[in-house]
Design a binder for these strands. Structure first.
Length: 301
DNA sequence: ATAGGGTTAATA
DNA sequence: TATTAACCCTAT
């Protein structure tokens, strides 16, 4: 007797999403056993979680079935034979830059916003949402688990934390850090101003393709993560989730293949369909999006 | 235990 | 018949 295919409920789906946020994609067993999710996911195996996440990821990316993507699996003629992937995402690779002359309004922002890692820190703090704050170890661990990171990351992290604290974006209580109310509020306002007309009530399917990137791309900015803390509107949260998944997926792709070609192919695909290319900025700056949404530029093929 | 290719049940 | 989502199999 063949099992009649047990379709995933939205509760299960939500549990999975949160599980991935908490433990990271790939820790299926951990998620499944987590007392926070095990009640909901009791009838699902770790493999089920993995498969479901795969489905979610691909459908959210706008590109339909998963087998279409495997064409992109081209190994770059990289001489780096060691499987220890490390160099690709970390340093803002200048190869990507030269291939794509983006209007980089980098640095010198009057606000003194710190590029790169700061957004990861905000993201980490938001995701962990510890009311008592999170200590350096927790933050470090969280980020290291999700992003490839430099060898001396721990040291940089300390520095960034100090700067963010000075900038009043996070606060240090005893040894724990957390996002400040003022920054969260500010981010919330920013969030509202750029989450416009899009009808969020529509089921997931509607958020495919261009719309995802064109209108709301800056939503992934560190500010957005903080914004969700305050403006906990589910719709926004879901939308943001889509972004997280998309970014994560692209990161994974490039990690796995260790190939810029793959990324390039992905980008080319999108460009050829006339999409606005915020993805590129993702590739360059990690979770840091341009603060001027108008700065996002298209890429010539 | 996980990733990824492959298979089958449901459905448009 | 083509797509999709849930499920299965196997190498790592």
């Amino acid at each position: 007797m063949g099992a009649p295919k047990q379709k995933w409920t939205s509760e299960e789906e939500e549990a999975l999403r949160r599980g991935v946020l908490k433990h990271g994609a790939g820790k299926w067993r951990t998620i499944q056993k987590d007392p926070e999710f095990s009640p909901v996911l009791s009838s699902r195996s770790n493999i089920d979680l993995k498969d479901k996440w795969r489905n979610l990821s691909f459908s959210a990316s706008g590109l339909g079935s998963r087998d279409k993507i495997k064409v992109l699996r081209i190994k770059a003629p990289s001489s780096s034979t060691s499987p220890s992937s490390q160099s690709l995402l970390l340093p803002p690779s200048d190869k990507v830059t030269e291939a794509s002359p983006l209007a980089d309004s980098e640095k010198s922002s009057q606000d003194g916003k710190i590029p790169k890692y700061s957004s990861m820190i905000i993201e980490a703090l938001y995701e962990m949402r510890d009311p008592n704050g999170s200590d350096v170890d927790a933050i470090c661990n969280y980020i290291e688990q999700r992003h490839e990171v430099q060898a001396n990351f721990r040291r940089l992290l300390t520095t960034k934390l100090r700067r963010l604290t000075a900038a009043k974006k996070i606060e240090k209580i005893d040894r724990a850090y957390k996002i400040t109310e003022s920054y969260a509020a500010k981010a919330s306002i920013a969030m509202k101003s750029l989450s416009p007309k899009k009808d969020l009530a529509k089921p997931l399917k509607a958020s495919q393709n261009a719309g995802l990137f064109a209108a709301t791309s800056p939503a992934l900015d560190a500010a957005a993560a903080a914004a969700m803390k305050v403006a906990d509107a589910e719709a926004k949260a879901h939308l943001a989730n889509e972004h997280m998944m998309e970014v994560e997926r692209i990161f994974k792709l490039s990690e796995e293949t260790e190939s810029l070609l793959t990324l390039a192919s992905e980008i080319y695909e999108r460009c050829s369909r006339g999409e606005v290319l915020t993805v590129l900025q993702v590739a360059q700056n990690g979770f840091e999006f341009e603060r001027n949404s108008s700065a996002s530029s298209t890429v010539h093929a």
